[in-house]
Design a protein around this nucleic acid. Structure first.
Length: 201
DNA sequence: TCTACGATCTTT
DNA sequence: AAGATCGTAGAT
């Protein structure tokens, strides 16, 4: 069995979303036999982020995103892909971090089975692929990651160098928000997609 | 109720 | 380069 790191407490999430996004890199997502190291994330929310699902206030879909930091926010995108977000900050803040890519640390057999027998970075680079590997759906919405028994976030290995760049797939956002460097990735990792617009930071 | 459109991925 | 596919937001 893979050695489990310390379970990260709720206060880990209750900080500004950009700080949480950075420090999520290298941490471990545990779900049963599967352990994934987080390699790529994006921060959403905060004050008037026109790329965020919270841009127009509270709705039925984004309700979990307004909870206190430490819970999951999961939604269906393009009718086929589930996206895993970790809610950050205080209740009512409406900020979250999208998990964009991971590196498999344990449970590779099960991951490959769920992903259709593929191999290599295509297994876990991209938010839809991460959610499929973890078999996540909206039944996980609002579930805390700082308690044992479900999806858990545990201590891993923080990266030596972090890359940053603009967020992917938000052409509808205001140019000023599109330009923000709110995407973060582990430098040198093969488990990161679209490395071209990333730079050291 | 109706309609347009995604924080994407796969195949052509 | 384009299709798949469906829940949701915003308009009616």
């Amino acid at each position: 069995m893979f050695p489990a790191g310390k379970l990260l407490p709720q206060c880990f999430y209750q900080r500004p979303v950009e700080n949480v996004a950075r420090s999520l890199l290298g941490m471990h997502l545990h779900q049963g036999p599967i352990v994934l190291k987080i390699t790529e994330v994006e921060a959403y929310g905060g004050l008037e982020d026109s790329a965020s699902h919270c841009r127009s206030g509270r709705t039925a879909r984004n309700a979990p995103m307004w909870a206190a930091g430490g819970c999951a926010y999961i939604y269906l995108c393009y009718g086929r892909h589930h996206m895993l977000n970790l809610v950050t900050g205080q209740a009512g803040e409406g900020s979250a971090v999208l998990i964009r890519a991971c590196e498999p640390m344990a449970g590779l057999e099960l991951i490959r089975e769920r992903r259709g027998g593929l191999a290599g970075p295509a297994l876990l680079t991209g938010p839809g692929r991460v959610a499929q590997a973890l078999a996540l759906d909206r039944s996980y919405n609002g579930q805390p990651l700082y308690e044992t028994g479900g999806l858990e976030l545990r201590e891993g290995e923080p990266p030596a160098v972090v890359l940053t760049g603009p967020r992917i797939g938000v052409p509808y956002a205001e140019p000023i928000h599109r330009a923000l460097a709110l995407r973060f990735a582990v430098a040198g990792s093969a488990w990161v997609a679209e490395r071209k617009r990333l730079s050291r930071g």
